[in-house]
Write a protein that binds this DNA or RNA. Structure first.
Length: 301
DNA sequence: CGAGATGTTCGGCT
DNA sequence: AAGCCGAACATCTC
């Protein structure tokens, strides 16, 4: 399920319910492949009687800080989720970790076991956390960082490169498709084939898609703006490209199903094309986004 | 019943 | 040597 926005949503859930409250007891339901870092049983001792103090996310990574210098790192993998349940909630199948607080339980569930749980004991945030790459929507996600990443993956299709967490922390399958569609770039283009203006455009769209996703999905699980590819790719029925009306294609690229619009993602020579009344970004001559998001969002509510 | 699923890692090859 | 690719991981759902 989770990409950057969903991860943010889950972390917020635990944070809002649990911060400031002591963990009375901890249940670890033996699934050793999930507990990295020799965590597992250690978690019981390490977290019991400590208070949850912080909840952060970075891309798809989550970090929960506890009193006494205990840090719980969680990655949701493909099917992980966090929930807040009642105090007497009974752990069900695939619940791997349950933190019991006075009046609630914080639950980590993951059917496919691709998730990961880590424990660190240190006064400050663990080193692995501090050395994560710049978040896509932060000022540190510079044009230089993007250029470097694209150069490194000069011969890889953009679709695969966008899933590289070292370059684009938090981008997953649906966000990658959304970005390419909004930027009108074919998923088959390689990093080395992009022109400077296209790289700028890619950066603008990346940041916009991340920010808007965080403000919708990440905030309250609400849908991203109307007009996004998002709404088509999750549709049970085949639907046409919202821009061209022509069929969307589903194709395997780098081992992941890619939903894209060949008639739309055509790498236009002109950067100043204008799309009337449309939820996705428009671009000016510098490849900058003239984003109508703010207004669109208000209208769609 | 088989295929595919919002992800990462590992091994083998260039 | 870094980058590229495919397979593997485990379970559920359509």
């Amino acid at each position: 399920m989770p990409e950057l926005a969903e991860v943010a949503y889950f972390a917020k859930k635990w944070g809002e319910a649990g911060i400031g409250h002591r963990v009375k007891s901890v249940e670890v339901h033996a699934e050793k492949r999930i507990f990295k870092n020799g965590s597992g049983p250690k978690l019981v001792e390490a977290l019991s009687n400590h208070t949850l103090k912080s909840a952060q996310t970075h891309g798809k990574q989550m970090l929960f800080g506890f009193s006494g210098g205990r840090w719980l790192g969680i990655h949701l993998g493909m099917t992980g989720e966090l929930s807040v349940e009642s105090a007497d909630y009974e752990a069900k199948k695939h619940d791997h970790l349950v933190l019991r607080q006075a009046d609630k339980s914080l639950v980590f569930n993951d059917a496919r076991l691709f998730g990961a749980v880590k424990l660190d004991l240190s006064e400050n945030e663990p080193t692995w956390w501090k050395s994560l790459p710049p978040p896509v929507s932060s000022p540190d996600f510079t044009l230089e960082h993007l250029e470097k990443g694209l150069k490194r993956r000069a011969k890889t299709p953009l679709k695969s490169t966008l899933l590289d967490q070292e370059i684009f922390p938090g981008i997953g399958n649906w966000m990658a498709d959304e970005v390419l569609w909004q930027a009108r770039l074919s998923p088959h283009l390689t990093g080395g084939e992009l022109k400077p203006l296209e790289i700028r455009r890619l950066r603008e769209v990346l940041r916009a898609v991340c920010e808007i996703s965080l403000e919708t999905v990440g905030k309250d699980w609400s849908d991203p703006p109307a007009g996004w590819l998002f709404h088509e790719r999750w549709a049970t029925k085949e639907r046409p490209c919202p821009q061209t009306g022509k069929p969307l294609v589903r194709e395997d690229i780098g081992g992941r199903t890619t939903c894209w619009s060949p008639a739309w993602q055509t790498r236009p020579a002109r950067m100043d094309y204008d799309v009337a009344d449309y939820g996705a970004p428009k671009f000016n001559a510098e490849g900058k986004v003239k984003s109508p998001y703010g207004k669109k969002r208000a209208e769609s509510k």
